[in-house]
Write a protein that binds this DNA or RNA. Sequence first.
DNA 1: CCGCATGATTTCCA
DNA 2: TGGAAATCATGCGG
Length: 423
Amino acid sequence: MDEQGRLLQARGVGIPGLPVQGGLQPLNPHQLHEPPSDNGEPRKQDIGDILQQIMTITDQSLDEAQAKKHALNCHRMKPALFNVLCEIKEKTGLSIRSNQEEEPVDPQLMRLDNMLLAEGVAGPEKGGGSAAAAAAAAASGGVSPDNSIEHSDYRNKLSQIRQIYHSELEKYEQACNEFTTHVMNLLREQSRTRPISPKEIERMVGIIHRKFSSIQMQLKQSTCEAVMILRSRFLDARRKRRNFSKQATEVLNEYFYSHLSNPYPSEEAKEELAKKCGITVSQVSNWFGNKRIRYKKNIGKFQEEANIYAVKTAVSVTQGTHSGANSPTTPTSAGSSGSFNLSGSGDMFIGMQSLNGDSYPTTQVESLRHSMAPGSYGDGISGSQMYSPRELRANGGWQEAATPSSVTSPTEGPGSVHSDTSN
DNA sequence: CCGCATGATTTCCA
DNA sequence: TGGAAATCATGCGG
């Protein structure tokens, strides 16, 4: 090293890219082939020349450089110089290699990967893409398209993100491969004039891959952000209260009023209702929870609604349009509300309500109800009787609180319940 | 803008 | 864990 260093310094070729000092002249190719002199000085001169030419080779035109490169490769000093370079390389290369630790898997990258995988952006495509997703959503939401439209919209957007992500990823990979091949070719080419071990090429490839993977990470990050924005927008939109469709409310109300004696749908019933209404099971649960509590709080207010659904149910029963009390189908609205004497029946129920308010004896209703087999059509028909608040009281836990406070709450304070009902 | 309707959330309880 | 009750938050009509 010492000798080499001194030599290089003496010849002023230690600083690449700078004009060479020390009075060296650009050499002609033929000078390389001059026979060596006897003393050492010309030999040094030779090495200096070679180095000088190597240094200035980039400044020359391609043809010139090619010619010079060829000349250099054929130079008699080349093997020796190459060995020296190899030696130096060996020393510095080791230090480089020791610096290069196998980097641990980036936890952030893992998180990103996991998230992309979880969101279905990365990994195998779910359900065959947006078209299938949209089709599935459309098929599942036959009753109320609101949710499915939103859902498919979300899926479409997600699918778009997915596509962009994959195409970008592909581009990056392609660019990475191209660049790697290019660099490898370059290094292979250079390995003829300077010592480049396969390991070094490998290391270089590793560096390139790391660089590109950092770009990929940025891509993943921005994809994640996009997904998060999409999610938050759509989830917020879904979280936002949105009234159910009229049809859905109708279905739910029908069930509620036809099961007024026990308005607690089973899981299966909830699922069926959810399917019918195009909402989730938990939404059905919410709806029934709200309905029960609100009905209880102000039965009078719901009486008319109850009557309407009683009529509907009765009509659908007499028309034989539904197959069971557990799955009330929506009656054809034209027939039910149009032809039936709605005002008359409504008056009747309102009359009943007032009677109930005056502690109307329940025996008749009770006997009627008991004569009905539970779960039969009678349940639905008896709804017209059952829509009296009194009926609720005859039935377990639901009855107690269901009784209007104005009628049967001697211990009732000046609290909210009364004011609610009076409202 | 206001008030009511109503779906969703939270808290408590059995 | 499901339901009751209270409450929140938004939609919507007047």
